[in-house]
Design a protein around this nucleic acid. Structure first.
Lengths: 195, 195
DNA sequence: TACAATAACATACATACTGTATGTATGTAA
DNA sequence: TTACATACATACAGTATGTATGTTATTGTA
């Protein structure tokens, strides 16, 4: 029964991976916990023990998705020293990553409804919006963008635009094309702020 | 049992109204059909008869929300003859309407997850995006905005920005302020396209 | 007007899923 | 070695949805 910490962590990770796949494929509401634990060759007791309930499991998966995407954005943004380029690189990385099948549904479709708005917002802020906001603030201070009536409003609008673009890209039959078109669009929109 | 057509339509409408309130207040997943029919002083048979299942009921409510918002947008946009002003008026009307409690949750949070992406997208297109796209197309043809690499991409980005702004407005403690800030932001972003 | 068909609404039943309570086995620390 | 805590398993209970069937009254037709 009881296992080493390493083994336990492996169990936890395996449950998360399997859940991620199942939630991605069928959506949260259509996945019974029994399916997940069957695939993991465990029983449901594990889930309640380690994650409290189904929602807790989803939260763990959601966090994993957010971390993956955040990492991608970080890597891509840092490929340039230029603040404006960093912003665009980050946008592109987000589009590429969030539009991938294994991230899209959990992050953008099921996330808000399953977690409830408050929790979703809190995590969205922690993993995505705060750094976007800081970056926009930097651009403002460096005089790269013109004074905004609200940095918060810009952060939210830009974030929303990217979320929707990611969903659009995900459903398109030509990913490279729609990614590029989305980037062109975001760039032109942001040129409204460019000094 | 059987009733006149008028009475039946009244029953249907009453079930939709009650559902709308309940879904708004608690979210789709946390409302049992029993609660809805109890309030309506009916039984669950009614729902299965008229709406097929719980999801069908939600779809009816969702459509009602979309129609309400679409109507608001139409009214507000038509308050100007100027195509650009019409766009902005429409944006504002959307923000005001979609950020209202009784619309926000059903439209923006539960909609995609409950209906499934394909259905949600189809209805979103029918009720919102197609007219936004047409309007942007008009602006393009009248030379008011500069040539875009993709009218679709712009439509999606703008739509996404507004959806997110509506959610942000809904959670703020000063609605008029955040509505104005969002409008300022949308306007500046769109100025990237202004000729 | 009478009657048959249909549909609006109700009820009974079955099933699936989540969560709770409890049990078992084992690692770790003293 | 023993006590404790925990990882995992099992049994049970409750809730919610959906399906099948029943009842009643309107509507359409002759």
């Amino acid at each position: 029964m009881k296992k080493t910490r390493t083994e336990t962590n492996q169990t936890i990770q395996r449950v998360i991976e399997i859940s991620r796949q199942q939630f991605t494929e069928k959506g949260y509401a259509n996945v019974a916990l029994e399916e997940i634990v069957n695939e993991a060759q465990l029983t449901r007791g594990v889930i309640y023990h380690h994650f409290s309930n189904k929602k807790g499991l989803f939260l763990a998966v959601f966090e994993e998705v957010q971390k993956d995407i955040g990492k991608q954005i970080e890597i891509e943004a840092m490929k340039s020293d230029d603040l404006w380029e960093q912003l665009l690189n980050g946008c592109r990385a987000f589009l590429v990553s969030a539009s991938e099948t294994q991230n899209q549904r959990i992050l953008l479709i099921d996330g808000p409804a399953v977690l409830g708005w408050d929790t979703f917002r809190k995590m969205d802020q922690e993993y995505a919006m705060n750094s976007l906001k800081e970056h926009l603030q930097l651009l403002l201070e460096e005089g790269i963008i013109s004074p905004v009536s609200s940095i918060d409003a810009l952060t939210h609008c830009l974030s929303g635009a990217m979320n929707e673009a990611a969903l659009w890209i995900a459903e398109s039959s030509n990913r490279p094309k729609t990614i590029q078109e989305s980037m062109d669009t975001l760039q032109t929109l942001l040129n409204g702020y460019r000094m």
